[in-house]
Design a protein around this nucleic acid. Structure first.
Lengths: 226, 226
DNA sequence: CCAACTGAACTGAACGGTTGAGTTCAATTG
DNA sequence: CAATTGAACTCAACCGTTCAGTTCAGTTGG
């Protein structure tokens, strides 16, 4: 009964870091493929690691799960609405629209939208993450909170910021930034998110038609001098 | 080993029908609240029925689950994209727009859209159904097929039909019906579906602003003579 | 430069306790 | 007489733990 003998500190060192990474990767793979119901033995086997090691690093299945989701929130190409990185093309939009030409704003929007849409449509991993989190929301309420934080809610900081910048520069005329941001999401990425929820993927032709029409619709409403 | 002794026919009769209904109802309630992981004992208890009776009617947990989902597809206020009944307001839209006034089409659209949007936003049961099905897609592939059938895919027969009718009557000018249908879904209901996936509900004020702006945006693009 | 040593991290396999799916059966009910 | 009940039962999966022995990174001593 030594005083500090029962301190359950996770292992440290270079080897531990590698193992830990392998565990998280394996857990993400299996959680995304099979859901939370997958066994810890399977995860340990997939990671090429003993089950005891898993429990030395993460104390429980719940802790491992939250670590996986938290890691996915930081990692590139993640986030509920497509994530920070997926929306990055939209961030560059404000810079790309420096020209004064009529069609330049439209072209910049098209390019940014295309990159954004394809990132959302083709990233099956993020789609699986959304499904997984929403399915386990009742078991991990605090996780839904963090997930919701940078999500379709009023935030979308990147997209909203780009639209605000373009408004301040006089390129767009947006009376309700919150609504306009939601509409841009709705016209471009929401259909792909809804499709993806059932494992369906929109074909290239329809994707392109929807994209072009969506950008034109948005600009017809909000381009300055319309 | 009597020849026909092992025939697993489900019970019949008026009593059996009542029990069966109670089981399906209880199963739907618990599946929606707790997910597929809920125990059969809990379902039997919720239905006020012995577990043996459950297994006499449905042979397995999977069979019970598919029966619940299949029943939800027929039952009112269901379907992936809000369902047939949720989209019913849109079906009546074509009839309501008989007047020739300028604002009448817009008013009819607003009313139909409001009913539709509120049906989708406030029906937490359908949201839970979507989450449940997408979460268990890997376990029930054939179910995802049926679910997808009357879903956000190219179908939307009701909405697309209403838009086609309005186009034929010269009230709308829609070059690409498939795209326009998707956009109407996107502008009006997709944001609520995405919100609902994380248990979030859009507040009334934002809901109304988004709705009005969405209808105006759609009509600005597709109203005849624009 | 290298062998021996050290201690933390890891392994493999087994085990305890629990949960849950599905079955059996005698008794009961409508 | 078919349907239902309640309770006990089997069987498998799974979470988490224990333990005896092994690997590995780094340090010491020659």
């Amino acid at each position: 009964m030594s005083p500090a003998a029962t301190a359950p500190q996770p292992p440290s060192g270079p080897r531990a870091a590698r193992k830990r990474q392998a565990i998280v990767t394996a857990a993400r793979t299996l959680f995304l493929r099979e859901g939370f119901g997958v066994g810890m033995d399977a995860i340990a086997a997939e990671a090429g690691v003993s089950k005891v090691t898993v429990y030395n690093h993460f104390g429980s299945k719940e802790a491992l799960f939250t670590a996986v989701i938290a890691g996915a929130l930081d990692h590139p190409s993640s986030g509920p609405g497509g994530g920070e990185d997926s929306a990055a093309p939209l961030a560059r939009l404000a810079e790309a629209a420096d020209g004064d030409g009529d069609g330049e704003l439209r072209t910049a929007f098209m390019d940014a939208a295309r990159a954004w849409v394809h990132a959302v449509r083709d990233d099956r991993e993020v789609a699986a993450l959304r499904t997984l989190v929403s399915a386990e929301l009742h078991r991990f309420p605090e996780l839904g909170e963090a997930w919701r934080h940078d999500s379709p809610t009023g935030h979308h900081p990147v997209v909203a910021g780009a639209l605000r910048t373009l408004t301040e520069r006089g390129r767009l005329d947006i009376p309700d930034l919150e609504v306009a941001t939601l509409q841009l999401y709705a016209l471009l990425v929401h259909p792909h998110m809804v499709f993806g929820q059932y494992g369906a993927v929109m074909d290239d032709d329809l994707t392109e038609r929807l994209l072009v029409s969506g950008v034109d619709m948005f600009l017809a409403q909000y381009a300055a001098g319309a």
